[in-house]
Design a protein around this nucleic acid. Sequence first.
DNA 1: CTTGCTCCTCTAGTCGCTAGAGGAAGTAGG
DNA 2: CCTACTTCCTCTAGCGACTAGAGGAGCAAG
Lengths: 140, 140
Amino acid sequence: MKPIAIGELSRQAAVKVPTIRFYEERGLLPRASRTEGNRRTYGAADVRRLRFIRHARELGFEIEDIRALLDLAEQPERPCGEVDAIARRHLADIDDRIARLAGLRAEVQAMLDECSRGRVRECRIVEVLADHGECLHEEH
Amino acid sequence: MKPIAIGELSRQAAVKVPTIRFYEERGLLPRASRTEGNRRTYGAADVRRLRFIRHARELGFEIEDIRALLDLAEQPERPCGEVDAIARRHLADIDDRIARLAGLRAEVQAMLDECSRGRVRECRIVEVLADHGECLHEEH
DNA sequence: CTTGCTCCTCTAGTCGCTAGAGGAAGTAGG
DNA sequence: CCTACTTCCTCTAGCGACTAGAGGAGCAAG
């Protein structure tokens, strides 16, 4: 029940001090109460909330989604469809990014495979970059 | 041989006008010569150079790498080892990102699989986020 | 001459932090 | 009580690669 300082919160939630202040400013954490000397004080609920935020960030959720997830987590009687929807959207987003990266990977690999390690003059990598027609890339 | 305006360059290279100015400021494109009325003018070489930049960006190379690639492309007699090295580093970077995303994907998918579509109270997604111990995540 | 398009410069915003300046408050030891 | 050290405060600026917008000037066609 004893309040802790921002540095202690930082250690307990494994989130850096400036990041905590940043989350407060962005409204993910409530405005912390202050000591007489104007220092932020926190309690157990803040540790839990900040850990939640960190886990969500580690999983790649963005701030807006986390804000929504936190709101929903506070309403335990509601159906969890919205939580689900956010996670599903995030999954789709990850899949998109993987697909795009896999495409890039294939192209860069193809360039490297064709490079005969001669001079820049006949380097296929440079040629492909200079003339888009030569590569697989076809996105708009 | 007739000079073209920035809008025409934009169309021919498929790069937006503000982005062209941005590249100039960053030194990827040489400072364009100007008309009497202070408008930038370009020639065929600029179109080629800007296309090169666009292709490299589409493949995910970052500005610094592209700057190096452009420098190298102008020295055709040098061995292409450095070009190769840049591409190889980029490939490794892509692989890293794919691996990390694949990890995230698995975790988010696992959360979704466990969600029984009930109320937020018993939603596994919220639980996993709230208690890191429950998830696969183990980094750092 | 007027309409409408293109162009100019400059500033600020995106995302999620991170780094640093410059100063005040708290704590431990002598 | 004094000093040294750590922690904390606010504020500003930077990252990467643009994008958006303000406010104004040039230019071509009718």
